[in-house]
């Protein structure tokens, strides 16, 4: 049915990636280098996540792909189609029935369970990069646990904005050891990273790094005593399903500048609407 090996990558490459994943799971939060392969899509389209997904997918898996919470963006659709073609796996939009979920910039609202794998697309894996561009130095800082610089970044945030303004890719400390960039998820999602039942894998294609959180790992968001971490979101219920506990996107709905807040997790929102929940903007 296809001209490719299962899930596009050859078996040797998949073994190499799996070894990197296993190493990442053994040292939670540690960035494992791997030999990233050319994929038939441009960098920035999640080539790191795609390679990780290709390495963990089996013919029995059911795959879900989301982009900022939505199953229907061009990026999500093209990756889903890619694996339908190259692996012939079942795909779904339902969080609950997926066994592997590849995501760009969100964690689904429905709690994930044991046996599921969440694969993140990562643009910049190195949380220290912005203040220390030398890779030889950042590697040393990780190995010696010299993480003062992460707090300098948060300090700068407060001194400029009066509060910690970092709202995406908010840095975390894993099991009291490695500081990790959770990829550009909103900080609203940070509390879900810790103690999660599912396996979390992070793939950075251009930067050739894989890192991982095994199930039930301790993940703490960095902060100051007098500026504690807050998992904030827009202070509204969803206009379509009325959910008060989900992360919301603000969308423009007409030429008059009308706007509404809706769940960024489209599957969560439609399931709630189907169950009869209604927001104030629902038709």
């Amino acid at each position: 049915m296809n001209a490719y090996n299962f899930a596009y990558l050859d078996e040797q490459t998949k073994r190499m990636i799996r070894r990197a994943i296993l190493k990442g799971l053994a040292i939670p939060g540690y960035q494992v280098p791997f030999a990233s392969r050319e994929m038939p899509m441009p960098y920035g389209w999640g080539t790191g996540g795609v390679q990780v997904s290709a390495a963990v997918l089996t013919p029995q898996d059911t795959l879900k792909v989301i982009d900022q919470g939505a199953d229907d963006t061009t990026n999500a659709v093209s990756i889903r189609t890619f694996f339908e073609r190259t692996a012939g796996v079942e795909t779904t939009t339902q969080t609950k029935s997926a066994t592997v979920i590849q995501t760009r910039h969100r964690i689904p609202e429905d709690p994930l369970t044991e046996g599921q794998i969440l694969v993140y697309q990562v643009p910049i894996p190195e949380p220290l990069r912005f203040l220390e561009p030398r890779e030889s130095e950042t590697r040393k800082m990780h190995s010696l646990e010299e993480y003062g610089l992460m707090h300098v970044k948060l300090y700068e945030d407060i001194s400029r904005h009066g509060h910690i303004a970092t709202s995406y890719a908010y840095p975390v400390k894993v099991e009291g050891r490695y500081v990790m960039d959770p990829s550009p998820i909103p900080k609203f999602d940070n509390p879900k990273l810790g103690d999660m039942a599912a396996i979390q894998l992070f793939g950075a294609g251009r930067e050739q790094r894989i890192y991982a959180l095994p199930p039930y790992t301790q993940v703490i968001s960095l902060d100051f005593e007098d500026h504690p971490f807050e998992a904030s979101k827009a202070d509204h219920p969803c206009g379509l399903c009325g959910a008060k506990d989900s992360y919301l996107d603000e969308v423009i709905i007409d030429d008059a500048g009308g706007r509404m807040f809706v769940c960024s997790d489209t599957n969560y929102c439609t399931a709630r609407q189907a169950a009869g929940h209604k927001g104030k903007d629902a038709a």
């Binding site: 610089l149 300098v152 407060i158 100051f224 005593e225 007098d226 500026h227």
Partner: peptide
């Protein structure tokens, strides 16, 4: 920076 490097966590 040096204060934070040795564990200061009160902004």
């Amino acid at each position: 920076e040096r204060l934070m490097a040795v564990g200061a966590r009160h902004y």
